[in-house]
Design a protein around this nucleic acid. Structure first.
Length: 877
RNA sequence: GGAGGCAUAGCUCAGUUGGUUAGAGUACUUGCUUGACAUGCAAGGGGUCACUGGUUCGAGUCCAGUUGUCUCCACCA
């Protein structure tokens, strides 16, 4: 007795079990067969202490679809998994836990003890995200799992840092950077998010020294005037030309500052006079550099006003200082007016605190030389973005990016391998830890700062494969085939991987960047913790199964576009799984023969037209699916599998095959062989999208491979094209549909059978399909005749011929006649339209032959309908 | 200020290089215990493809412009 599938589809019963088997069998590890072409992907490493969210689920699903498809297509596939140490994010979490549970700060513990705590935390939570990825069915090679701070990745980081430093591409400098006063660290430009916020425009008078004159400046940040070192006007602004070179007295502060001329000033904006605060504004910093202005830093790291330059405002928090200063200015008669305005405020991408631009010593990567090859490789198409439009976004960023601030004042991360000698002032950058100054023999201390998290993820495609060693993996799997990620991290990650790959490997890190959008909630809002509208993928898996989740994520949206996730979508996905489950159950419960008998495809001469039709249609499906996966149209591929499975296979083929299956003998065996073949084919095509259910069913069916995931992916096969049979069956389907429609219109229940008279030139087709017509078109008997005499029947005209159903008791002959006439009119209209098109000189001479052929075939069908209609109408007199 | 996306059935969205009478899911109407599935089956209704021009034998698709909407980037303080 053959193994039966459980009556109900309940994924919980088998998903974990199947995943375990796959792991035990080591199916996820690449095939060592050297003759196989290589296909590789590195995972975008999720934050090590993070939790799986819908964005991950989408990202993993798409990668797994690609990897599983390629594996089945005969590639040696490697999907490298791993996690990211996520500097700020992780440190914030551990600090928060320390604060809540022990009332301590990291400074209370000290660097070493604190880092121990972070490692503990990582060890405790690091596996959570990994096990969540497994729940999804991801076929990563877990034996190659990496972590951005493991020994190998850390070695790669040092290697890269030292190389870049030696080439002069990493430097340390006193620059203006983005500072997060909450995280107490510098941030890169990419880590600042700008939000439009309501603010005010304060107009303030600065008196001109030795005169009664004033200049009025406008600012949104009056508190920074403590650090003003000039006021700038446009060089060609006649209003202020006479003041350039004069000296102003900074109100309240009473410091003298010059009026300078600089082209950056917009004459028409504000008052046309700009206060220049080089220490607290990026453009002012540049202006200051051009004019050799002093830099007066008036803020501490926590955004309070400094003691040195703060005067009476020292120690005040920045907004408190603003209020105090404005009130003092007003009192002193310096405040002209306050204008409400809205302006862009930079915020920390981790904690949303308003960042403070300020000057300090930081480490930078010089971008211009690195950007050049990174641009070329995309512009030449060697690295392709999918969809293509994202390459423009990348190019635009790469062309305009500033030097990358890579130092972070955190403790969790790769500590910068620079060593300072306090005795002689020497600085040494070294791959190895060193303690003694090579210049003076004095003691060295290592740089306190760590590197930006993205510095190590930039190396991910090669650091995970063993670089800087020359490894077999690098040789075989680098460059990787495709990178799958969301458009939100093109700047953070994709661009940096590209220039890093070019610089350190001399090769691009991947050939294609496959970009997807965001998963939004049912109302189209971004899922976020603060809104509380996030849908937990694990809960969805628990309720509907991982396959349904994957289906819902992979279907119905185009590459690069955002998608909405809703109950409706997941239910529809689950229903599809259920449909497949039940169709398989039906097939299985009818298989009584030996496996060996069922696994061979019948001979052509034994097959019916519907057998050849379904094989031929499946063959086309295989082609469509392969083509669409090649062009990253995974949603289209899946949609095609869906409609073939549900419509073609379940609703038509199984129904057509039933009459034979329930019999015994040769015809029955033939039908079952075709059923097994096509169902197995569906399972294989679908496996990359819904790995669990397809494996569970595959194992229950007669099968030849140990697992569906290592079986061969179906592909187009010339010998399985049956064009004539396809046309025959389409005619039968047209007839059945037409009969059903007429019966439904007249409210004749399917249980009321009636004879079916067929006048057709396709006698043989209808003869062969008689059983099917009886079953699917409620025919008690199918009579093929040259002429139908009686006039008490419902007449149905199709391109396959005229069909008559004697149902005199339900027919209203007047209505029947009117309907046929209306159909005739419509049909004639179509004929006229096509004939016009075909007699159009331009169309016939310019349209491709295939299109013209299509129109002619269409015309032929309409003419056949016309004939059938005429015949039917003649019966009614 | 620059760049880009989106606008197609009541709703959510597909529609690949221009080529049948524009599709799916869902919702809706009607009928159905049809030898697996009511998480189902059958038959339906529902669209001026945002608007205006243009290119073409042919435009949802390409081009230009308009409107609405979302997003990203940017040093107008």
């Amino acid at each position: 007795m053959r193994k039966e599938l459980a009556k109900n589809y309940s994924p919980r019963e088998f998903e974990d079990r199947i995943y375990k088997t796959w792991c035990e069998k080591k199916y996820f590890e690449p095939d060592s067969d050297e003759k196989k072409p290589a296909f590789s992907i590195v995972i975008p490493p999720p934050n090590v202490t993070g939790q799986l969210h819908m964005g991950h689920a989408l990202d993993e699903t798409l990668q797994d679809v690609l990897v599983r498809t390629k594996r089945m297509q005969g590639y040696s596939t490697l999907w490298v998994p791993g996690t990211d140490h996520a500097g700020i994010a992780t440190q914030i979490k551990v600090e928060e836990s320390l604060r809540v549970n022990e009332g301590l700060t990291r400074y209370d513990l000290g660097r070493e003890k604190f880092l121990e705590r972070v490692w503990d935390w990582k060890n405790q939570y690091g596996n959570r995200i990994i096990s969540q990825l497994k729940k999804l069915g991801s076929s990563c090679d877990w034996s190659r799992e990496r972590f951005t701070m493991d020994e190998g990745c850390s070695r790669a980081v040092r290697e890269v840092f030292v190389n870049l430093y030696n080439k002069g591409l990493i430097y340390r400098g006193y620059r203006i950077i983005n500072w997060c006063p909450r995280c107490l660290t510098a941030l890169s430009d990419a880590e600042v998010e700008y939000t439009e916020q309501p603010g005010s425009f304060w107009h303030i008078r600065y008196p001109v020294k030795g005169s009664d004159e004033f200049v009025t400046i406008a600012t949104t940040r009056p508190e920074t005037m403590l650090g003003d070192t000039a006021v700038a006007v446009h060089p060609e602004d006649e209003r202020y030309a006479h003041l350039v070179g004069k000296t102003l007295i900074l109100p309240i502060v009473n410091r003298e500052i010059p009026v300078i001329a600089d082209e950056y000033v917009e004459r028409d904006f504000g008052t046309g006079c700009v206060k220049i605060t080089p220490a607290h504004d990026p453009t002012d910093f540049e202006v200051g550099a051009r004019h050799n202005l002093p830099i007066i830093k008036v803020m501490n790291d926590d955004a309070t006003i400094s003691a040195e330059y703060g005067g009476k405002y020292a120690g005040m928090e920045r907004y408190e200082a603003r209020r105090a200063l404005v009130s003092d200015l007003e009192e002193g008669g310096y405040l002209v007016k306050i204008e409400p305005c809205s302006h862009n405020v930079g915020t920390c991408y981790r904690c949303k605190t308003t960042v403070e631009p300020l000057t300090c010593d930081q480490w930078f990567v010089k971008m211009a030389p690195l950007a050049k090859p990174a641009l070329e490789v995309v512009e030449s198409g060697e690295v392709k973005f999918e969809p293509e439009r994202f390459s423009k976004i990348y190019i635009n960023w790469m062309e305009n990016c500033h030097d990358w601030c890579i130092s972070r004042q955190l403790w969790w991360g790769h500590r910068i391998p620079a060593f300072y000698c306090d005795a002689c002032g020497h600085m040494e950058v070294s791959k190895e830890d060193i303690t003694v100054c090579p210049k003076c023999g004095g003691a060295l201390r290592q740089e306190e700062d760590v590197l930006d998290t993205w510095f190590s993820s930039a190396l991910w495609p090669f650091s995970t494969m063993g670089w800087p060693d020359k490894t077999a993996d690098l040789e075989r799997y680098y460059p990787t085939s495709v990178l799958v990620t969301g458009y939100d991290i093109i700047f953070f990650w994709v661009s940096r991987m590209i220039f890093s790959g070019m610089e350190h490997m001399g090769k691009k890190p991947f050939s294609t960047v496959f970009i997807h959008g965001l998963v939004r909630d049912a109302q189209g809002r971004k899922m976020s913790k603060s809104l509380g509208n996030g849908i937990d993928p694990l809960k969805v898996i628990e309720e509907y199964g991982a396959d349904a989740l994957r289906f819902a994520l992979a279907t119905g949206n185009a590459p690069g576009n955002d998608m909405r996730f809703s109950d409706e979508k997941i239910e529809s996905a689950r229903n599809f799984a259920n449909k497949l489950w039940n169709a398989s159950r039906f097939v299985l419960m009818n298989l009584t023969e030996e496996d060996g008998e069922l696994l061979t495809l019948p001979k052509d001469e034994d097959m019916t037209i519907e057998d050849k039709w379904v094989l031929s249609r499946f063959n086309s499906l295989a082609k469509t699916v392969n083509d669409n996966v090649d062009s990253y149209e995974l949603g289209v591929a899946l949609q095609e599998i869906y409609s073939f499975t549900w419509d073609t296979f379940c609703d038509w083929y199984i129904e057509m095959a039933k009459s034979r299956i329930f019999d015994t003998g040769a015809a029955s065996l033939t039908a079952k062989r075709v059923l097994v073949h096509v169902l197995t084919g569906i399972l294989k095509l679908l496996h990359p999208y819904m790995p669990f259910i397809t494996e569970e069913i595959y194992q229950a069916l007669p099968h030849s491979d140990e697992s569906i995931m290592i079986s061969a992916y179906p592909k187009f096969c010339e010998s399985l094209v049956y064009k004539a049979d396809e046309e025959d069956v389409e005619r039968i389907i047209t007839a059945i549909t037409a009969i059903r429609a007429r019966r439904a219109e007249m409210n004749v229940p399917p249980s009321k059978k009636a004879k079916l008279y067929v006048v057709t030139k396709y006698k043989d087709t209808f003869l062969r399909a008689a059983k099917i017509l009886e079953k699917l078109a409620s025919a008690s008997e199918v009579i093929i005749t040259d002429e139908y005499k009686s006039d008490d029947a419902v007449a149905i005209a199709t391109d396959a011929g005229s069909l008559y159903i004697p149902l005199s008791e339900v027919i209203d002959f007047e209505k029947e006649r009117a309907r046929l006439l209306s159909e005739q009119k419509k049909n004639d209209g179509e004929i006229e339209r096509i004939e016009k098109k075909l007699s159009n000189e331009g169309f016939v001479s310019k349209a491709p032959a295939q299109v013209i052929e299509g129109e002619r075939a269409k015309l032929k069908r309409y003419l056949e309908v016309r004939e059938a209609l005429a015949q039917s109408l003649a019966k009614l007199g």
